[in-house]
């Protein structure tokens, strides 16, 4: 029994991280109406960057964010400004095909540099330390990850509703043409949105890189998780995204509890069931 409770708590805690994967995807879709197929590979790029920074400089893994976040922001801004802006506002195919191309390039680029070996970031003692409540033990690292996830989602919410850039982003999402007539440089705004999304990806990349090992080929599974969370949670609601993340995390944990090989499968099946029962997601967006 306590093993099951443990599993579910673990699922909830990783669900926070899944919500972070999804938050970036959802932000980009919300503002640009583009589903970024390179999302997962960009997260993995962030993980490799953290890995490289940590192993070259010998710093603590958590400190690698000092390099990862600016780099991810810059990468996101540049990709949007140089490539993706040319496809915004066209029909659905060009942005999909172009981001798919980027995904393949990133994946194979990483493969070329880092080979297909498993890597993992080492956060030190916190990874094995745990909190004991009765029969239930919860790892401090999982708690740290969950708290970070909630904090970042709250931060995104704050940026969206309390800051000028958030207002401009929401306005541009509503009606890019009129935003431009108000004086907004929409090409810049789109790129800023991508940069913010990539910073969120960067944080989740570092956190996830210590949670489990990764290879250059891990991108698609990250993308699929992010996507499933967005659909489960319903578009346009950031707290819905959190609920979506928790749902997927718990579904995977429960599947893994029944049979370790069923973990990913359980997540996918939960997604299909919700898609059939509630096509607009648990939280229907506005």
């Amino acid at each position: 029994m306590s093993e099951l409770v443990n599993t579910i708590i673990q699922g909830i805690l990783i669900g926070g991280l899944y919500a972070l994967f999804a938050a970036g995807l959802s932000l980009v879709f919300g503002v640009m109406r583009v589903v970024n197929l390179a999302h997962g590979d960009l997260i993995v790029t962030g993980s490799f960057l953290a890995f490289t920074a940590t192993s070259i400089l010998g710093i603590h893994a958590a400190l690698s964010v000092v390099f990862v976040l600016p780099f991810m922001a810059l990468l996101g801004y540049s990709i949007q400004r140089a490539i993706l802006n040319r496809t915004v506002g066209t029909n659905v195919l060009p942005p999909l095909l172009v981001t798919f191309g980027i995904a393949i390039i990133l994946q194979n680029g990483l493969l070329q540099i880092f080979t297909a070996d498993d890597r993992k970031l080492d956060f030190g003692n916190i990874e094995i330390a745990s909190m004991q409540i009765g029969n239930i033990s919860i790892g401090w690292y999982s708690i740290l990850v969950f708290v970070c996830a909630i904090a970042i989602i709250a931060g995104l919410q704050f940026i969206s509703y309390k800051t000028r850039i958030g207002r401009v982003l929401r306005a541009t999402a509503d009606d890019p043409e009129v935003a431009q007539v108000m004086g907004v440089n929409t090409r810049h705004t789109f790129s800023v949105a991508m940069a913010i999304a990539m910073v969120v990806c960067g944080i989740s990349a570092v956190l996830f890189a210590a949670w489990t090992s990764f290879t250059p080929l891990s991108g698609p599974s990250r993308l699929l998780i992010a996507f499933e969370v967005v659909v489960i949670g319903g578009l346009g609601s950031i707290w819905g995204t959190l609920i979506g993340g928790l749902t997927l995390g718990v579904a995977q944990a429960f599947g893994g509890y029944l049979n370790p090989a069923w973990q990913m499968l359980a997540g996918h099946i939960a997604f299909i069931i919700i898609l059939v029962l509630r096509p607009a997601g648990i939280f229907k967006g506005q």
């Binding site: 699929l224 299909i272 096509p279």
Partner: peptide
């Protein structure tokens, strides 16, 4: 086909993953 455009794209990918995982079982 409940999913539109880009969402269908990734949904179909998820479906293929399910096929893969089921086969591997």
């Amino acid at each position: 086909f409940r999913l539109n455009g880009a969402y269908f794209a990734i949904g179909s990918w998820v479906m293929a993953e399910i096929f893969l995982l089921l086969t591997a079982q």
